[in-house]
Design a binder for these strands. Structure first.
Lengths: 172, 172
DNA sequence: CTATCTGCAAACAGTTTGCAAGGTG
DNA sequence: CACCTTGCAAACTGTTTGCAGATAG
């Protein structure tokens, strides 16, 4: 599905839910689609949207994000426990199951995995704990391929954190 | 390992790291050990500690929690994206791998699973994405056994959320 | 005795809310 | 034209910090 189609679909969802189509909302949605891989925070979305629609206020962005979360267009997430909420675009298809994330502890990069790796895990839990699984949140923390290569090049163990290279993840 | 032994061990860790053993810190650690299953927030820990040591201040609790997190005695977590950090006691044994959580979306109960269910998942990711996994965060969201039973008793589908029973998870 | 630690209050950052003005359907 | 939506500023919440006095080692 193309960006334009996605935007059109979200627009329709808003309308069906009885919301009005304002310039601010469209611009916000456009920014979110544009940067869907970036896991932006509200503030970051605000700044990017303000570049398009300068008269927008931060409160409106928050209200729009809240709205989109209710409509299951977005998911709130926080990888780092720094009190900042980031927003993640939901998959457009039927599967309500949330995708997984790989968080590089060295460079802070976040990669998404869209295969569902937890089918058997969820089955195990359902059986062993009588727990009916509806969704999941999985983040694997480690070192991405790039940083492994960089570490090797510097004569360091590839699969161990290089503290000198480590960025402050809470700044992301 | 008993509570007393754990407390003793943490006390030793503090000392070795060059921290002083104050009454406030001991009381805070005691509360955390006491309620290790409850995933308390800083405020909740403060209230329980103040019951023991009334002259303690909230800032001290925050500073102690920060300290214990650095010493890898605690882990910061947030199941619900409400901006409140909760604290989770680390396993005392060698395995640095974080345990998993089952979050009941109906009653808000949180169960811990201490078996590592992700060995094969991590292997898959390592191979397919060249990602060196160091740790993980997994929360399975669904309906606990209790709520399933309650739903059944009320003639509702056991494995589907009963909205009328749903508590505000962000209040936990 | 000295460096660390404490409580308090003020400062902070992210988010939410009340309100009057503006815009959509 | 009625109601929704907006921007602004003020309020709020969880957390952090500066400081003078208290305290552990």
């Amino acid at each position: 599905m193309s960006k334009a189609e996605q935007l059109e679909q979200i627009r329709k969802q808003l309308q069906e839910a009885g919301y009005k189509l304002t310039a601010q909302r469209e611009a916000t949605v456009a920014v979110i689609l544009e940067c869907s891989q970036a896991h932006l925070s509200a503030e970051q979305i605000f700044i990017k949207t303000k570049a398009e629609v300068p008269e927008i206020g931060l409160a409106t962005v928050y209200r729009t994000l809240e709205m989109l979360t209710e409509l299951h267009v977005l998911n709130k997430i926080s990888f780092v426990e720094d009190g900042v909420t980031h927003y993640d675009l939901c998959e457009e298809n039927a599967s309500q199951h949330f995708h997984h994330h790989l968080l590089c502890l060295q460079c802070g990069a976040i990669e998404e995995i869209h295969e569902d790796l937890l089918v058997s895990v969820e089955q195990t839990v359902a059986e062993r704990f009588s727990f009916a699984v509806l969704d999941h949140r999985l983040t694997l923390q480690g070192i991405c391929a790039n940083c492994q290569a960089a570490n090797s090049a510097n004569g360091l163990p590839a699969n161990q954190l290089d503290p000198s290279k480590q960025v402050d993840i809470s700044q992301l």
